[in-house]
Design a binder for these strands. Structure first.
Lengths: 159, 159
DNA sequence: GTCCATTTACTCGGATAGATATTGTCCGAGTAGCTACGG
DNA sequence: CCGTAGCTACTCGGACAATATCTATCCGAGTAAATGGAC
């Protein structure tokens, strides 16, 4: 199981976007985090398609949130980048082979699929319980309140 | 995020192995589940490397558990197939760019890595709380107690 | 000085190659049981 | 009838291709601001 690398980038970008009142261009975010601009843009497009951010073209354009950072959960960002499909997809192999389960007895999931689904639900619940605002606050506490202000000023000065 | 396809196969195979007192060959498990024998063998090798099953060569050989099915958790099987590395790997991009965090302030994980790690821990806890024995019992309840007996008899008759 | 048309530069967006991991397959090494032979 | 040597067949194990996904990049379409000129 491997999570897309862009998830980390997107989360950091969301935290940064939350610090700026004006839209932030993708190139600026790429410079701030030291990552490939073109590839980051691809992931930001995914955030845009998911309705998490809104893009503005032209000068003074960029990406901005569609709603307050406290209302954006980590789960929404992860699913926007990585897709909403669950990691475990039951292929119903119980229907194969000489002891195949008849269709009329295949109403629900089997115990294996249930266990995997329950675990993924726990994972999603944990991610849904953290908002982008929480992340920014956590980073701020780690740096004694200096990190987020530095980002705010850098984004404002660069413009 | 995509979980290896072999995880489902391995879990079904473990449930089946738990129903047989004698070692079960990989080819038999492949026939029972209607999957490619050679590829399934590859995954069973992973289970063997992880110490979950023990392989016996020669006639009457095959795979058998190293310990009771109640002491084998779903998490152990999943990690044996998919690897123990977490899905989210922090690449420490906070150290990049013009606002790079100094090394002396990078003691622990950042808030983003913490949130992702906590979610994966919840996922692992859920999987660790289910044993192979639990899975077999759950499947049995779904089929009114017929499924596991059918597997037992089929594995015994085929020999 | 004010308004408007034009130009300019900057933005995003999707379509296009390369690298990596997963999926699928094969054949060789080794072992346990079976068979045939000798005692 | 019993023991033993050889043989056969079956098992796993790792090494070898094909495919799918993720990573990385580029250039074109569109838009808002800035500019220059006319009134």
């Amino acid at each position: 199981m491997k999570l897309s690398n862009g998830v980390e980038w997107a989360l950091h970008c969301c935290v940064s976007i939350g610090q700026s009142k004006a839209p932030v261009p993708a190139a600026r975010l790429a410079e701030l985090h030291g990552v490939a601009p073109a590839y980051l843009a691809k992931h930001l497009q995914a955030l845009s398609r998911a309705g998490i951010v809104r893009s503005t073209p032209g000068p003074t354009g960029g990406y901005a949130f569609t709603r307050p950072a406290a209302q954006i959960t980590v789960l929404q960002v992860v699913q926007a980048i990585d897709g909403p499909e669950p990691a475990f997809r039951c292929t119903e192999i119980r229907r194969n082979g000489p002891l195949a389960v008849p269709d009329d007895q295949c109403s629900g999931q089997c115990a294996i699929a249930r266990a995997m689904a329950a675990a993924e639900q726990a994972w999603r619940d944990a991610l849904a319980g953290v908002s982008i605002d929480d992340l920014g606050r956590g980073i701020d506490e780690d740096s004694s309140g200096t990190a987020m202000r530095a980002v705010r000023e850098w984004l404002a000065d660069a413009r």
